[in-house]
Design a protein around this nucleic acid. Structure first.
Lengths: 253, 253
DNA sequence: TAGTGGTCTAGACCACAAA
DNA sequence: TTGTGGTCTAGACCACTAA
């Protein structure tokens, strides 16, 4: 059995007997084409008429799926021309959960990582609260220094509920994204997250790690990520150097 | 002619002869009911079947409109129960353009304002660039100190293209929101905005105004707002005290 | 059981872009 | 002219909620 031939990921055909709605199945299929880069930015998505024929689904349902992808920012439509895969957006970190690697690539920077700490700990009270577990429950704690073009940019402090991903710390997170391991090895997909963003002053340890003066301004993000079943899995604290990192997003009136 | 009887805002009936799509007309009508608080948070929106009858529009189209309102975060649906107006969300400042007043109300704080500066100036180079006008073009410049429960919280620096709203500075912005004046007096609706968010150190003047020490961490937001025709109207710089203000939002995987 | 939203179909006609 | 997406209709059957 070869994992590459049978990815745990999305199927590529519709199962009419399944209880999963057709539009949801088709959504997973098309989304899979895009996130795996089988359809690349700028590529035209098959026209609605072709999707209707190919999957034997009504145009209304096909359009519902495309609407979802448009909402996700994965594709855009042009009347008379077609539907196209979006160029990676500039909505840095404020609409989709990005790994540090993805974020840096989008900014045209080369990512680097140094693992500072990797240990299993009992959940501190405040962390337990965010992850909806009892204090003392085993958590995987991973602390990493992030570099952009070799320069220190951020410090990430990650707490994972260990029973959902036992042995998670045995992998190497200097080179491969944590989210990738969670998805591949533990089938843990983080589909949703809540975060707060604040400006804070760098304490001594952070200042030293990031090579800034004491009390330098930092962008602090606290994020809790959830599975599709709304189970909280990860509490993440990120501290970005204020002089080197900005968030960008778009608002509606 | 009484403005209260004939608001410039949305009509409340469908015009089948109009070139504006039905779904868009219905969207404006329903959205109007909500933003004017004729339908209040928690209220049930008329069931789809009733909207179908009332406006003589097919259910598919009615559902398309409700989908848009759901996407806007204005309503949510519950199968078997109905569709309801949302409680004002906690997505503070990261998905909809909020006035300071709205923002404070959502946080349960009492807003206050002191106008620091109000003048017409020639556009500086950097500002002109953001607003897509030539350097030197007349801009209305408004600088305000914002208070929460009487304590200094933020400083807002606003630049408006003066020819779109001549005389805008003659109104009183200590008590009424700028956006409200723009919409009522000048029919300028800000429907979209782009912003960047950064942590910065408080310079001397800001530190004095906000009663923090020099170089204290501040959350800096730079925002350009656009009309529905994509004309940039306002460049806004906001500086929030880092210890008293946080942003919150939700992400998708 | 009655009323709600959730899913899905098979059409129709239109506006726009490109050849 | 052809092919694309944009708008709209009139149904159908289902799943869930509440009385």
């Amino acid at each position: 059995m070869n994992l590459a031939q049978l990815p745990a990921g999305p199927a590529n055909s519709i199962d009419r007997g399944s209880k999963v709605p057709l539009y949801h199945q088709l959504y997973e299929i098309l989304r899979g084409q895009i996130v795996t880069c089988q359809w690349k930015p700028g590529d035209m998505v098959p026209p609605e008429s072709q999707l209707v024929d190919q999957y034997d689904i009504s145009r209304t349902t096909v359009r519902q799926v495309l609407d979802m992808l448009v909402n996700d920012g994965l594709v855009f439509r042009q009347r008379g021309r077609g539907t196209f895969v979006t160029q990676p957006t500039l909505n840095h970190g404020l609409s989709r959960i990005l790994s540090f690697t993805e974020d840096m690539r989008q900014r045209g920077l080369t990512p680097g990582t140094r693992v500072l700490l990797s240990e299993v700990v009992g959940a501190p009270l405040e962390v337990a609260d965010h992850l909806n577990v009892l204090p003392g429950v085993e958590l995987a704690h991973l602390k990493r220094l992030r570099l952009a073009n070799g320069e220190p940019l951020s410090v990430e402090d990650s707490y994972l509920v260990h029973r959902y991903c036992p042995g998670v710390l045995e992998h190497d997170y200097a080179s491969s994204p944590l989210r990738e391991t969670l998805e591949r090895r533990y089938s843990l997909r983080l589909s949703r997250a809540q975060q707060t963003i604040q400006a804070v002053a760098a304490p001594k340890e952070l200042a030293r790690l990031l090579d800034v003066r004491l009390n330098a301004p930092m962008l602090h993000i606290e994020r809790v990520s959830y599975t599709p079943q709304d189970v909280p899995v990860e509490l993440l604290h990120v501290f970005h150097r204020g002089d080197r990192y900005a968030l960008y997003n778009e608002l509606l009136g």
